[in-house]
Amino acid sequence: MRDVRLWIKKEGRAKYISHLDMNRCFTRAVRRAGINIWYTEGFNPHPYLNFLTPLSLGQESDGEPLDIRIMDDMQNDEITQRMNGVLPEGISVAVTSDCISKCADIAFARYTLVLDFEDEAKAQSFTNEARQAVNDGKLFAEKVGKKGRNKTVKQIDICAHIKEFDIKTDGETAVIDTVLSSGNDNLNPTLLVSALNGVIFKEELLHIRRKGFFKSDMTEWR
């Protein structure tokens, strides 16, 4: 019995599969792949699967960590290979590794955001203003949460959650490369975009892709 970490690539059609559905999807995929997975031992045993970092609906990722516990000594490469034969379009296992880093050590995540505009001029002016706004450090967004049954609205200081930020114009698009806080104090990149929209104007379409995770000292989280 050992724990392994599957790095799940999610793109294209599959980005519209929600976090909860991803769990269901993998429960079945693991069975189809014939991987001997550990079942919880409660009243209602179910296969143990742990997506460490929920990804919002509509976002893509280069590698989402999924921890599972296997009951035999199947090699990592074989797990990758078997899983990739049985997954829906747009989902694949980039690599299977041992569980090196601890979940609690996730501090940051890198994202690429692509914003589509009507024309190049709009993309260019968005780029300039967004860069300025982040430099000025005055970006706020409202985060709607829940406390029990009540809805809460929290003011979020976006810049306090930005570790790195780079933006450039590429044709009719603005491309943002950014590192945001993740893990316990997670900032959803859509909040960054909505804060930018608040001061500037609305983009036409937004693509978000998570590129990887870091520890608090910016070393790679594996």
Partner: peptide
């Protein structure tokens, strides 16, 4: 993989997974 209009439509609806296909076993 989708064109821009499809992406716009899908990002505007509540359950986009109803319209995207690509499931395991789809032909």
């Amino acid at each position: 993989m989708f064109d821009k209009i499809t992406e716009k439509m899908l990002s505007a609806v509540q359950k986009p997974g109803r319209y995207t296909g690509g499931e395991q076993g789809a032909v």
